[in-house]
């Protein structure tokens, strides 16, 4: 189980592979990952970049709790959560969630839980840079 808050661009595939190397070969039979990236539009506006703020300390606690709950609920072998903060450019990854499990059902469900719960419980806030100023994102769709 690993939780990382990163301030610089990250490569989701590299993060996934590096973590998976630490797992015992054969201890899982399925892996599901989700990557969220910054798109260049939102609510009919062109987005130029995004500032991502968080609550240091509480963020890590919430992500740890989410990972533990997922692991227990679906008997996951391992989980990985990586979330970017700071200034994010178009196309860059924002978040990576990965679940390793014995079978695919648990891997899919666990990964889905990780990202869905992160979006409601982990204290992150997005502020978009638009052509005509900045705008706080007000919902977590």
């Amino acid at each position: 189980m690993s939780v990382k808050i990163v301030t610089a661009p990250f490569d989701p595939q590299d993060e996934l592979q590096q973590y998976q190397k630490q797992l015992r070969p054969g201890c899982f039979g399925a892996m599901t990952s989700f990557v969220g990236t910054l798109r260049d539009f939102n609510n009919d506006s062109t987005v130029l970049s995004m500032q991502l703020e968080h609550y240091p300390g509480m963020t890590e606690k919430q992500l740890d709790a989410i990972a533990k709950m997922a692991k227990t609920q679906w008997q996951l072998e391992a989980t990985l959560l990586v979330h970017r903060v700071g200034k994010i450019r178009i196309g860059e990854p924002i978040v990576l969630t990965v679940a390793w499990a014995t079978h695919r059902d648990a891997a899919f469900a666990g990964c889905r839980y990780l990202i869905d719960k992160l979006k409601t419980d982990a204290p992150f806030w997005k502020k978009e840079q638009l052509n005509n100023g900045t705008r706080w994102v007000s919902n977590n769709t």
């Binding site: 979330h83 982990a122 204290p123 992150f124 806030w125 994102v137």
Partner: peptide
Amino acid sequence: VAFFPQITGG
């Protein structure tokens, strides 16, 4: 004690 608006990460 912390106050904040709707969480919008992910």
